[in-house]
Design a protein around this nucleic acid. Sequence first.
DNA 1: TCTCAATGTTGACACACGTCGATACAACTG
DNA 2: CAGTTGTATCGACGTGTGTCAACATTGAGA
Lengths: 117, 117
Amino acid sequence: MSITTLSTTPQQLPRVDDCGSSPVVALDREEAERRAALLKALADPVRLQLLSIISASPNREACVCDMTEAVPVSQPTVSHHLKTLVDAGILTRERRGTWAWFRLDAARLDAIRGFLA
Amino acid sequence: MSITTLSTTPQQLPRVDDCGSSPVVALDREEAERRAALLKALADPVRLQLLSIISASPNREACVCDMTEAVPVSQPTVSHHLKTLVDAGILTRERRGTWAWFRLDAARLDAIRGFLA
DNA sequence: TCTCAATGTTGACACACGTCGATACAACTG
DNA sequence: CAGTTGTATCGACGTGTGTCAACATTGAGA
């Protein structure tokens, strides 16, 4: 997956009544929407903070109780953001007794980095 | 810049009345907002399509006239999206006579990829 | 089973965002 | 200078999103 699309048309000489560009094929609409959905899940300061906490924690996993303390929003809002990230496939949730633990999905993050190349 | 933050606390043994995690420092709020703003500029299917067109064009630059044809929205909407990307520093605009040309800012894209590492 | 603590869900609100038609601006051409 | 074409801005509308208080749910342990 790459944000770039191969050009299929050779370069043309500019004409006076034309900007002289060579039209190329845009990224497929459905793929663009999939990628936008992933980026949208990342595009929030609170969610970036939550991800940084998980990423910096031992075993790269974190409990909700730690995250609510480290972020300037209420507990329901933290839960909402975590759900957003889980739904996007960026985090996985695991319940251990009373506490809920979250881990990063490395493959999903690789994919995101990949289509920004 | 990295999404990860170094852990400054050693791992603890779990206790019964505690989830047993080691609290870590979250990403700085201001930095999180800067990164979120950049990601938000990318997190739209139309803008991803526009970027793909520019990236795939000869000399990695594209004219508005080509983009309006390749994307399923009106010309004012294309102009709006391009302004969003320029404001975010992801694109640069250059006027050549009647036409407006846009190029990617490679450093800005590198930075975005960087803090997803 | 009952209670308590941790977590998730719901409903409501304010605000941001994508979209378009109408219009304004800019630059080439006659 | 006037007309034409490409591009940008404005105003308005509907939708999406972040937030919280209130409530529901889950699981541990007495």
